[in-house]
Simulated assay, not measured.
Amino acid sequence: MATNTVVGNLICSDGTNIPLKLDLVEGTETNLTTDVAYTVTAANVGDFAPGKTVVGGLVSCDTGVGYSFILSQGLVAAIIPWSIKGAVTDGQPALCQPYTLKAGDIVRCMSQTAADRGATAAVYTARGVSRIFHVTPSGGATNELVDLQTGNSIGDTLQGDRIVKWYGTSVDGALIETQGFYAVDALGNVIGSCSATDPATQQPAFAMASVPIQLNFKFQFLTNA
């Protein structure tokens, strides 16, 4: 697979900026380290600036992007908004909540090809939980977005919690035959609709929501090809 130069910048509460840059292999989730042009050595963010509180940031890929987040002790600690170069309208969007870096924290990023159909939803809950849900459609079907880390449904992952912010990204455009990504209850009723923005044409942004999640709920969308 080819590599893309992925860049980013994290903004901290004290005004510190943490520039990020690395050539990442397409289709492989990878650590995104600091930009050696400004930080001398490539370092993971937690080791570069432990104790700094990140309040905003953005990661941008060349042609396709799956997701980006701060990983801490095996969990998604904070979702970093992602985009495609040239479609950015806000260079420092706010995180869902400030996050204080710890030693060992890393930024994880998935750089994709322009044709990669990987679809992703970023959600933030009333309990302060950040999760990423992902699926790659392969044809006309009902596609369930499942938790990136566990492969579980949204009902198993967020049972008893409530989504308060979310956004989704997909390159499928007119192939999608639902209003973005639907959260559905155990009976198949739609209880919420999340955007499915093509990041190559528009920078995705978090939208407010109020979607309670219970066991056996699913996160899905329909494609016609």
Rank of each mutant, 00 (worst) to 15 (best):
M1Q: 10
A2M: 10
A2S: 13
N4M: 12
T5D: 06
V6P: 03
L10V: 01
C12E: 04
D14G: 06
G15I: 05
G15S: 04
T16A: 14
T16Y: 08
N17S: 13
K21H: 01
L22F: 04
L22N: 13
D23Y: 05
T28Y: 08
T30Y: 01
N31C: 08
N31W: 06
T33C: 06
T33W: 01
V36N: 11
A37D: 06
T39W: 03
V40T: 15
V40N: 15
T41G: 06
T41A: 15
T41I: 13
V45L: 05
G46Y: 00
G46K: 02
F48K: 11
T53H: 06
V54A: 12
V55S: 08
V55H: 06
G56S: 14
G57Y: 01
V59S: 00
C61P: 00
T63D: 15
T63Y: 13
Y67R: 13
F69S: 03
I70K: 08
L71R: 13
S72E: 02
A77R: 02
I80V: 09
I80T: 02
P81H: 05
W82L: 05
S83V: 01
I84G: 02
G86E: 09
A87M: 04
T89Y: 03
A94H: 03
L95T: 01
C96K: 04
Q97N: 09
Y99V: 02
T100W: 02
A103G: 01
A103P: 00
D105L: 03
D105H: 04
I106C: 12
R108Q: 12
C109N: 04
C109P: 01
S111I: 08
R117E: 11
G118M: 08
G118F: 04
T120V: 14
G128S: 06
F133V: 06
T136Y: 05
T136S: 12
G139A: 13
G139W: 04
G139T: 12
N143T: 07
D147S: 12
L148E: 10
L148W: 03
T150I: 07
N152C: 09
S153I: 00
D156G: 13
T157R: 05
L158G: 07
Q159D: 15
V164A: 09
K165S: 14
K165A: 12
W166P: 01
W166V: 09
W166R: 06
G168D: 09
V171N: 15
V171Y: 05
G173Y: 00
A174R: 14
L175G: 14
I176C: 11
E177I: 06
E177R: 15
T178N: 06
Q179I: 08
Q179S: 15
D185K: 14
D185A: 11
A186K: 10
A186R: 13
G188L: 09
G188S: 11
N189E: 07
N189H: 13
I191K: 15
I191T: 11
S193R: 15
S195Y: 00
S195K: 01
T197S: 06
T197H: 03
D198P: 02
D198S: 10
D198I: 03
P199Q: 05
A200F: 00
Q203F: 02
P204Y: 00
A207S: 15
A209R: 07
S210M: 09
Q214L: 08
N216M: 12
F217L: 04
F219N: 11
Q220W: 00
F221D: 07
L222I: 09
A225W: 08
